[in-house]
Amino acid sequence: MAESYRRSQWSNGLFVLPYLAVFLVLLVFPLVWGAWLSLHKVDLFGPGRFVGLANYGRVLADPVFLQALRNTVVFVLVSVPSLVALGLFLALALNKTTRATSFLRALFFSSSVLSVTIVTLIWRFVFIPGDGLLAVISEQLGIAPVNFLSTSGWSLFSVGVATVWWCLGLPMMLFLAALQQIPSDLYEAAALDNAGPWRVLTRVTLPSIARTIMLVTIIQIVMQFQLFGQAQLMTNGGPNGTSRPLVMYIYEVGFVRWDVGKAAAASEFLFLIILVAAMAQYLVSTRKSEVSE
């Protein structure tokens, strides 16, 4: 009996084997390999040599890395709250069962299925100087047009606008799914207590979807720290690196300068930053939910 039970356990484990293999090959192995590369002076044409933590010191001493880090942190601090707030606003506005809301849901979500190339092409038509949409509108209003894509301070803003427009569909749908799971009894009880819309939102709706808010925030932190395609295709990191994110820095160091060890060290920094930011958000949200309960 015990032998047959153990045999059934092993046979059940076979169902997990395909996922486990993919997990090891696509996640665990690259993580370990990247950490190994970060400890070596290596390019793509030789075996390399062990240098310890020297690559990490080179990365921290590189002003281009520090600029890219600052750009990425600023981008995340602006884009993530914008995506969470706008996604929640749209979900609250479209949480109805009508044809109009169904059409608007599909419309807002449609941008999420576009490739980064299509998204950047659309927004280049908006921001490009001379014949761009904003330039034409500025000329009609008698305002001097701004060269958004090649002006320091505006280039990263332009990338952020395109990113928020592109990524807004997922937070909206996650919030909609959470809102539709809230029991109607809570709203009926609030109506009996003559609670106003603001009180219902802050005392019923938001506490009920607190875990979804935390989930959306963590997902967006992880995604926005990996900014690359939009910045490369819209501004190429310019002007003077003011819109260069960390992933673009890693790409340039590893595949343009062929300094793979340094690029791996920079990627390890990016991994740690994402991990710390996501865990901090998780811990803060967990403590708030415990206090509210």
Rank of each mutant, 00 (worst) to 15 (best):
M214W: 01
L133T: 12
A195C: 04
Q220G: 06
W166L: 01
F109E: 10
V161R: 02
A177H: 07
T205Q: 03
V126E: 04
D131F: 15
S111G: 10
S115G: 15
S150Q: 06
W166Q: 09
Q226G: 07
W154L: 08
F228L: 11
I137F: 11
T120C: 12
G153S: 04
L227P: 10
W166F: 12
A100M: 15
I209M: 04
G237E: 08
T212P: 00
L94M: 07
M173Y: 05
L134M: 02
T117F: 12
A189I: 10
T97N: 15
V126W: 01
L94H: 07
G130D: 09
A178P: 03
R105L: 11
V161K: 07
M172K: 03
P129A: 04
N236D: 13
N147M: 02
R99P: 00
G237A: 10
A106G: 15
L133F: 14
R211L: 03
D193G: 01
V126H: 07
V200P: 06
L149F: 02
R203T: 07
G196I: 01
I209P: 05
A195V: 02
S150K: 00
Q140M: 14
L92K: 00
W123P: 08
V204S: 01
L156C: 08
T205I: 00
G196L: 06
R99T: 14
L170S: 11
F228K: 12
V216K: 00
T117Q: 11
V146C: 05
A189E: 08
A177S: 13
L133I: 15
L176T: 01
Q180E: 15
S115I: 08
M172L: 12
Q232S: 14
